[in-house]
Write a protein that binds this DNA or RNA. Structure first.
Ligand SMILES: [Mn+2]
Ligand SMILES: [Mn+2]
Ligand SMILES: [Zn+2]
Ligand SMILES: [Zn+2]
Lengths: 144, 144
DNA sequence: TTCCTTGTTGCAAACATTCTCAATAAAGGA
DNA sequence: TCCTTTATTGAGAATGTTTGCAACAAGGAA
């Protein structure tokens, strides 16, 4: 069963209705491994159907986030980015000085997330978030 | 020297000009220990001066973030929240099912942040961000 | 298959945030 | 103190995202 069918089934099991709009949107974000803004999803949606509204795209993406099927985060360029689990669990270190983004691998976070689960009984899967700070280059080149 | 004078000095040292608008905005966010939205800052600004524009509030808060004097994160209610270091370093575990927010203490994160610094030479201070997931109540009460 | 209930959609308006630009004023030098 | 340079401001337009609501349609019942 393909990735997006799993998502659709999960949503149906949660009582959501499966509409053609949702099928198209979920297929797009599920098959594309990268972050996408709502507008980028919308562009691909338009290739498949001509009358889906941007509000429906936002609503569907947010529904996925609320049900743990996608993550949502501030991409730093003024648009919110969405991605499914296929994008893979990792976090982004965003330099607030130069804007560079460094990826932290799953391996380097797992111990931390296990701790969060043990101490707080909180399940942070699929995890994909950003931490702001100063990158290596910027912290060493600055006088301050 | 009060908290906000330290901020003002740091900004002046970085070449920024100190305007009455910035003094008022920084004083407000520096003295208030909690997260505030730009609109909430604006309301307090209006009590001190009648003609400061909301764009200036946004610009000043973002300037603080870019210079490591404040953090900025998605509060979940549709408005971005800002806070200075006085709010204290910690992270928020936000339940995407019920919306509850659990605070993770500095103590439980420090090992992770040291690892990030060692491995990636990235300085994530002042850290104050959120992780989405399922809270204890929701993960156990749900059938899924 | 048909009907009913109620969740979902498209649309437009509202809202939150960012940007553009001409006017203003902070900071430093004379 | 006055002048010059140039960062900053207010105003409003633009952009990105959310919301209210009437029309529509998915999914279950009969
Ligand atoms: Mn990513
Ligand atoms: Mn906080
Ligand atoms: Zn950097
Ligand atoms: Zn919860």
């Amino acid at each position: 069963m393909s990735h997006c069918h799993t998502y659709l089934k999960k949503l149906r099991d949660h009582g959501y209705r499966i509409t053609p709009q949702r099928e198209i949107i979920i297929q797009i974000i599920a098959h594309c491994g990268k972050h996408m803004s709502a507008e980028e999803v919308m562009e691909l949606v338009r290739e498949k159907s001509s009358s889906i509204n941007i509000a429906t795209v936002y609503r569907t993406l947010d529904m996925m986030v609320e049900n743990g099927l996608a993550s949502k985060f501030d991409s730093g360029n003024g648009k919110t980015a969405y991605a499914t689990g296929k994008h893979g669990p990792h976090i982004h270190l965003v330099c607030k000085h130069c804007g560079s983004v460094t990826k932290v691998s799953e391996n380097d976070i797992s111990a931390f997330l296990e701790k969060i689960e043990d101490l707080y009984d909180f399940d942070c899967h699929p995890y994909h978030f950003s931490i702001n700070g100063l990158c290596s280059d910027c912290r060493h080149s600055e006088s301050n």
